[in-house]
Design a protein around this nucleic acid. Structure first.
Length: 461
RNA sequence: GGCUGCGUAGCAAAAUGGUUAUGCAGUGGCCUGCAAAGCCAUCUACGGCGGUUCGAUUCCGCCCGCAGCCUCCA
């Protein structure tokens, strides 16, 4: 039985789909004005893994992840770059897709964009205004009247009075209540704008997600996800908008992933302490990044450091080494014990660290089978590869992974030649020469491994 | 100040009211010409103080420390 932690109730709940056998999941995606950093990668990988697991459990999943392609930051960046804002967003959407593919993140089923959903957004705002949940402020912007929505603050555990007691900066006098938030923002000269009953402008950030999610998945759907920081105010506002407009319950289950940190501090654009995915990819194989992300539970903080990435690389190397030389053919050989243990881990709120631990136990068994019980090799290897596929890892050719890491110099052909030379030296028992060749390669980051059958395999460290 | 959450061995990271997590690193052994890889064995734990309990790292309370949200942020 799959259990998932629900932010709304702060407990793990047995997962109950709204419609038997089907799941609708919406995840807040990127605002595309810059390259994705490792924090964004975490969202993509985490929810990709969730999506893979739902499909594995035979749910008919509709996975929606939006793209925010119009907002203040985009406009600002476009002006800085002296670039058309649509060119800018196209560029970064393409870059995002490249990063996704590198990280083995399967594309969502639907990827709606704010600028392509303007009609839906306007119609939702109209409804909110008609229901008196929204009003036009003194500056012409349309605001949501937070006081009109009784459950406001429930998701994030905020109390309205406490919030108002807090020191809020820049209270916008156009609003009736400082907590009210923008639904429709009037355009300044030369800003991108769409016509609306309130004049030319653009949607506020929160409304687009309400409009796009309900359009794609219906007024009421199963799962809504995103980073922790979106809990308040973004998701709180989404609930107020959607439930306010439709009069129906919006989402059953809210999932929030933890942050990536650097030196125990949140990685974020505003702090400037972020690493982009493509930056990290220059140093590490993409699968190492994915493994690193899955090596901690999705709700825990994840500290980013070279040491951690290197460890992830070593760990993956161990798994691929176990898989080396095996041939995976059929699914029917899958080992039930390991499958059960793996599913148990994943069923417990997607506990990927435990799921990975199962894979390591499996790898040890596989290594043992290689020397003692060859008849078990095929089944164990198949089990390892199939279970790993649910996490989006171990799908590459082991040799390709083991030889492919590193940013070093020696080309494969030279390495192979050196190995042949060393094998000659070994047959004449010229250990000095054999060891010299091995050491020279080692200095270039190439590790040699002699096998009992007289051949030598190699990998990059 | 209010509200969340966290504090596990050298590092990372899980589970659990009494029994091996797991990975990397260390130590000893097997294997090897020597290595590497692999296998076997093994050393480092549960922030502090109280309480509940036959027994707590695990439940409860307090304290200390850390992070996040309360403003755009995955």
């Amino acid at each position: 039985m799959l259990k998932i932690y629900n932010t709304l109730t702060r407990t793990k709940e047995p997962f109950q789909p709204r419609v038997a056998g089907k799941v609708g999941m919406y995840v807040c995606g990127m605002t595309v004005y810059d390259y994705c950093h490792i924090g964004h990668a975490r969202v993509m990988v985490v929810f990709d893994t969730v999506a893979r697991y739902f499909r594995y459990l035979n749910y008919e999943l509709t996975y929606v992840r939006n793209v925010t392609d119009i907002d203040d930051k985009i406009i600002k960046r476009a002006i800085e770059n002296n670039e058309d804002y649509e060119k800018l967003t196209e560029r970064f959407i393409e870059a995002m897709h490249e990063d996704e593919r590198a990280l083995a993140v399967l594309p969502p089923d639907i990827e709606p964009r704010a600028t392509q959903s303007i009609e839906d957004i306007i119609s939702m705002i109209k409804t909110l205004v008609a229901k008196d949940l929204a009003y036009v402020g003194t500056n012409g912007d349309v605001f949501y009247a937070v006081n009109q929505f009784k459950d406001y603050g429930r998701l994030s555990g905020k109390n309205m009075d406490d919030l108002q007691a807090g020191e809020r900066v820049d209270i916008d006098l156009a609003k009736r209540n400082p907590m009210d938030f923008v639904l429709w923002k009037m355009a300044k000269t030369n800003e991108p704008a769409w016509d609306s009953p309130w004049g030319f402008g653009r949607p506020g950030w929160h409304i687009e997600c309400s409009a796009m999610s309900t359009c794609c998945l219906g007024n009421h759907f199963d799962i809504h996800g995103g980073g922790m920081d979106l809990q308040f105010p973004h998701h709180e506002n989404e609930i107020a908008q959607s439930e306010g407009a439709t009069g129906e319950k919006f989402v059953n289950l809210w999932m929030h992933n933890g942050f990536v940190r650097i030196d125990d501090e949140k990685m974020s654009k505003s702090l400037g302490n972020f690493f982009t995915v493509r930056e990290v990819l220059k140093q590490y194989q993409p699968e190492i990044i994915r493994f690193f992300i899955l090596s901690s539970h999705y709700r825990s903080p994840l500290n980013y450091s070279d040491e951690q990435l290197n460890d992830a690389g070593s760990a993956l190397t161990r798994l691929y080494t176990a898989l080396r030389g095996t041939i995976v053919t059929s699914n029917e050989l899958i080992d039930q014990d390991y499958k059960n243990r793996f599913e148990q881990a994943m069923n417990d709120d997607f506990n990927t660290p435990v799921a990975l631990a199962v894979l390591f136990d499996l790898a040890r068994d596989l290594n043992k089978a290689k020397s003692h019980e060859p008849q078990k090799i095929d089944s164990l290897a198949a089990t390892l590869k199939i279970l790993a596929s649910l996490l989006g890892i171990l799908q590459a050719d082991p040799e390709a992974f083991l030889k492919g890491s590193g940013n070093n110099n020696a080309d494969n052909k030279t390495i192979e030649q050196q190995i042949l030379a060393r094998l000659d030296a070994k047959t004449t028992k010229d250990w000095a020469l054999a060891d010299k060749i091995r050491n020279d390669l080692k200095e270039q980051g190439v590790i040699l491994e002699d096998s009992p059958d007289g051949t030598t395999s190699w990998r990059r460290e």
